[in-house]
Computed example of a mutant assay.
Amino acid sequence: MEFEALNDVKDTNTVCPIHQTKTVSFGGRNPFCPDCQRKKIEEEEKLRVQTAAERHRRRQTVETLEKDSIVGDPTLKKVSFDTYVPDNLETEKALQLAQVFATDYLSPDRKFNVILTGLPGSGKSHLAMSMLKYINENAAPSMSCLFISVNDLLRRVKDSISNTKSFYTEENMIRLLTAADVLVLDDLGSESSFKRESSESSEYNQRLLFAILNARSRTIITTNLSSRELEEIYNPKIVSRIYRGVEGHIIKFTKATKDKRSKINF
C-alpha cells in the first residue's frame, strides 16, 4: 500500500534536544520531532481515557443522587444540614445525630440502618436528604447515594408493567436501589394506606421492598409509623431487614416538634 503523502516528509538540519534525533517537516508544517509527536499523541489518548473513566465514575457515584433519585417533594432537592433550623431541644438533637450518622457512613465498613420516625412535617425527609448530600460531598473515595420516595417508586414500577419502554421496571429498580452505597427510603408505610389506621401493605409491595432491603445493610428510612405499626403492616422478614443495625441509630420526633410545613388557617 502506498501513501503518497509520505513523499512530502523531509528531514531537516535541526535536532530534537530531547531525543537527539533529526526533526522532520511535513506538508509545510514547522519542523517537529517524530518521537515528541508520538509521545504527545500517547499522552492525549491517556488523558481522554482518564477523562472518560472519571466521567463514568462520577456518573456511578456523586451524580447518582441528582440523576436517579425519585423525590416526591421537589423542595427537598435544595435542602442541606445548613438549611435545617432547629427550634427546640428535640430538633437540635435530631440534627446532631443525623450529622454523626452521616459521618459514620463515610467509612464503607460501617453497616447499619437509620430510622427517622415521627409525625408528618417534623423534618425527617429534610435530614435524610441532608445526610446523603453530606456523604456525597465528603466521601473519599466517592459513594453512590440515592433518595427514593417509596410511594412514587411503587407507582412507577407498577406503571411500567403496561409501558414496555419505561425505565422504572421492577428489575431495573431492584438493581439500582441495591447497588447504591447509601439509600434513603422516604415515607415508608405511606404505600399501605392513606387512612389513619394501619392496614397491611400489599403482597406485591412487600415482595419488592423485601428484594431491596434484603440485599442492603446501609439504608436510611423515614416513616410516620411506630415500630408497632411497622410490624402490623409488614411481614416479619421485612421488619427484620428494616431493623438491621438500627439499635442506637433511631431519630425520633414527638409532638414536641411542630409541623414545619406551612399551614393555611381559615
Score class of each variant (00 low, 15 high):
Thr12Asp: 02
Tyr234Asp: 00
Glu232Val: 12
Asp187Ile: 06
Ser162Gly: 10
Ala128Arg: 11
Val157Asn: 02
Glu63Val: 01
Val150Lys: 02
Arg59Lys: 10
Ile161Met: 14
Val49Thr: 15
Thr219Trp: 09
Val9Ala: 09
Lys10Asp: 00
Cys36Phe: 00
Glu63Pro: 13
Lys258Trp: 08
Ile115Val: 07
Pro120Phe: 06
Phe81His: 00
Gln96His: 13
Tyr134Leu: 02
Ser199Trp: 04
Ala128Ser: 06
Lys22Tyr: 09
Asp8Leu: 09
Lys133Asn: 03
Val157Glu: 10
Thr222Val: 00
Ser190Trp: 07
Lys195Pro: 07
Lys260Asp: 01
Ile41Ala: 12
Phe101Ala: 00
Thr257Pro: 10
Glu191Cys: 01
Gly72Ile: 04
Phe266Gly: 07
Thr51Phe: 14
Lys258Ser: 06
Val62Cys: 09
Thr51Gln: 15
Gly27Met: 07
Val15Leu: 10
Lys78Glu: 10
Lys263Gly: 13
Leu208Arg: 04
Lys40Ser: 06
Asp186Phe: 07
Met129Val: 05
Leu230Cys: 05
Met129Phe: 07
Ser217Asn: 11
Glu247Asp: 11
Gln37Asn: 15
Leu209Val: 00
Leu6His: 05
Val71Gly: 02
Val49Trp: 14
Lys111Ser: 09
Pro236Leu: 01
Met173Trp: 06
Gly28Gln: 00
Asn224Met: 00
Leu185His: 09
Ser142Asn: 12
Ser190Ala: 15
Glu203Phe: 14
Val114His: 05
Ile115Phe: 07
Glu203Asp: 11
Arg241Tyr: 04
His249Gly: 09
Asp181Tyr: 12
Val85Ala: 13
Glu232Asp: 12
Ser192Pro: 01
Asp87Trp: 11
Gly245Lys: 02
Gly123Arg: 00
Gly189Lys: 03
Leu47Glu: 09
Gln50Phe: 05
Tyr84His: 03
Leu225Arg: 10
Phe266Ser: 11
Glu137Lys: 14
Phe101Tyr: 04
Phe26Ile: 07
Lys93Gly: 08
Pro108Leu: 12
Ile161Leu: 11
Ser193Met: 02
His249Ser: 13
Phe101Gln: 00
Arg261Lys: 07
Ala215Gln: 05
Ser25Thr: 11
